[in-house]
């Protein structure tokens, strides 16, 4: 369960999130939509401890994540959260295997080979395991990212416009992948400005001016 209570966040005097409260409990696939600059990324970053609210409480499974120590933050990011970004955020000098394996190296997992192969199969990238990520297409890179995001078996996937750099065919693949993950019990929070993508989820939260404009169950 992800619970945001009276969250405020401002950058340089500009209030980006204004007293926002949101609970994500039953739905496994939630989209956050809204105009550019409406604070979607900021919201997602705060759930992922990449950023912290000025006031208000964010709790995940009833644990207040705003109070985390550095070590707890690291542990939380590594184990509990899987990040997928628009810009992929892969290490270009590594091959697919090593990129996917990084979270496992960090957590000190033992059976790395097996686990990486498993998730790569899941995203349909197991034939590219030895390939440099810089040689892959955007869609393929994003699939590698998803593999990396789920390799440590996190409960929550935070995807910030994962299809922003992709064509419609690849976008469909990525959204379907996220949908599958949600069906398999992961909590997926998808930030997008594409309403067609958003409609594939179970719930659409629309942000505007740092506030929730509408909250719609599908």
């Amino acid at each position: 369960m992800i619970e945001l209570k009276n969250i405020c966040k401002s950058f340089d005097d500009a209030m980006v999130i204004k007293d926002l409260s949101l609970v994500i409990e039953k739905e496994n696939f939630v989209s956050i939509v809204g105009k550019s600059g409406s604070g979607k990324t900021t919201l997602l970053n705060m759930i992922g401890t990449l950023d912290f609210p000025d006031s208000g409480i964010i709790s995940v499974d009833n644990i207040n994540i705003s109070k985390f120590s550095q070590r707890e933050i690291a542990e939380y990011r590594n184990r509990k959260i899987g990040f997928v970004f628009q810009s992929f955020f892969l290490e270009p000098s590594f091959d697919v295997f090593h990129n996917v394996a990084v979270p496992l190296y960090i957590s000190g997992e033992k059976d790395i080979q097996k686990r990486v192969e498993e998730v790569l199969k899941l995203v349909g990238m197991n034939d590219y395991i030895k390939k440099k990520v810089s040689k892959l297409s955007g869609g393929e890179q994003q699939r590698v990212c998803i593999a990396r995001a789920i390799v440590n078996n996190p409960e929550i996937i935070l995807a910030d416009e994962p299809c922003g750099n992709l064509d419609s065919t690849n976008s469909a693949i990525i959204i379907d992948l996220l949908k599958t993950l949600a069906e398999n019990g992961k909590k997926v929070v998808l930030v997008t400005h594409d309403m067609d993508d958003a409609r594939k989820s179970e719930r659409i939260v629309t942000l505007g001016d740092g506030m929730i404009m509408s909250d719609e169950l599908l």
Partner: peptide, 16 residues
């Protein structure tokens, strides 16, 4: 820088 940032986001502590 980019790589280090990636490690941070993926949950590696600065000290490590």
């Amino acid at each position: 820088k980019y790589y280090i940032n990636m490690l941070l986001v993926l949950g590696m502590s600065r000290i490590r």
